[in-house]
Simulated scan of single mutants.
Amino acid sequence: MSAAGGPVRYGIVGHGWRADFYLRLARQVPERFQCVGAVTRRPDVGARLEQQWGIPTYRSVEELVASAAPEVVVTSVPREANPEVVSSLVALDTAVLSETPPAPDADGLRRLWAAVGASDLVQVAEQHPYLPVVVALRTLIADGVLGEVTSAQVSWSHDYHATALLRILLGVAAEPARVSAVRTTGPLLEGPDRGGWPATPEVRPAAHTLAVLEMAGRSGVYDFSEGQWFNPWRRRHVIVRGSHGEVVGNEVTWSTENGTPVSAPIVRRHTGLDGNLEGADLDTLSWSGRVLYRNPYPGARLSDEEIAIGTCLERTGQWRRGVEPAPYPLADACQDHLLALAIHAAADTGGPVTTGAEPWARAVRP
């Protein structure tokens, strides 16, 4: 099924591991995504991308916008360079999907907001809220299955990715937060990284950060071990608690109308297993007889991470067309990165850190 108005036409600034996700989307789901070009400073890198991916390349964002007319431009550059690239695209009246974080520190966030915040042209490529299991959890929360949500715990990803999940699960906007944190170091067997598995996995010291965020009368727990992203020895842990039930991992416990406690798991249907010949693909996530999530890109053989990245990109395109609301605006990204910085500051000092009302606060959504 094609997107409303045809595939999203997007350009990319930068190259490398993260940019390749967006290039693969255009190849694997061409009816929904079309990469119209990439910007690289070096001609030799541009030539390699042209040969490998079959796209034109340009040496500047001005050339990309003038020649390829993208609806959205993804910025996948070092965080120190990102604010300048984003500002250049906004000056060209071009919508931006900025890689995370949008700036390296709190002052950088404030400068970026002052420069482009009023433009309403900048979204941020935070895919975690669009991961299939997170969408399923958000559906349960929105439907009131857990009652009033009071706390959440995430041990999965790090920094702004984790704080984005905590804020969304708790339904918190940009209220002031009191953050307490501790950091310890312990042994952990190496897992794979972006380059794959180590030849001989070794046990190495890994930092472990544990933080509590008190926001709007609710509490969020941040729990992350260094290298946890790909490490199979550290599984995903998500807990959401409300007045009428809780979710622990994939198990949901809730109250019926007459007050009876009942439980049921969130079940993943993945095709291609055993004798199934539909191909290896995510199909649905269901719970208690209800489908909570359906793969929007069936047949593309995408991982959950790729599905989430594609969803964020496609919704950015549809937002630019006026079809859908903004997927993850700059204001939300600034707030989540501010909270992540507060976690590190609290862990560094050993004392609590309190965030205040920032210039973007009124634009942040719960």
Rank of each mutant, 00 (worst) to 15 (best):
A3C: 01
A3E: 06
Y10G: 00
G14V: 08
G14P: 08
G14F: 02
R18I: 10
A19T: 05
F21K: 00
Y22H: 11
R24Y: 13
A26D: 03
R27W: 02
E31I: 02
D44A: 14
L49G: 13
P70I: 03
T75V: 06
S76Q: 07
A81P: 12
E84G: 04
L89R: 03
L89G: 02
V90C: 03
L97H: 01
T100L: 04
D105Q: 00
D107H: 07
A114Y: 05
S119P: 07
S119Q: 01
D120W: 00
A125I: 06
E126I: 05
P132M: 08
T139A: 12
A152Y: 06
W156L: 14
H158W: 09
D159G: 07
L169I: 14
L170S: 02
E175C: 05
P176L: 03
T185W: 09
P187H: 15
L188W: 03
P198I: 11
R204W: 14
R218Q: 06
V221Y: 04
Q228N: 06
N231S: 13
P232N: 07
I239M: 08
V240Q: 12
V240P: 13
R241E: 11
G245K: 15
P261S: 04
G272H: 04
L273Y: 09
L285F: 08
S288I: 01
G317W: 05
R320Q: 10
A333S: 10
C334H: 06
G351D: 15
E358A: 11
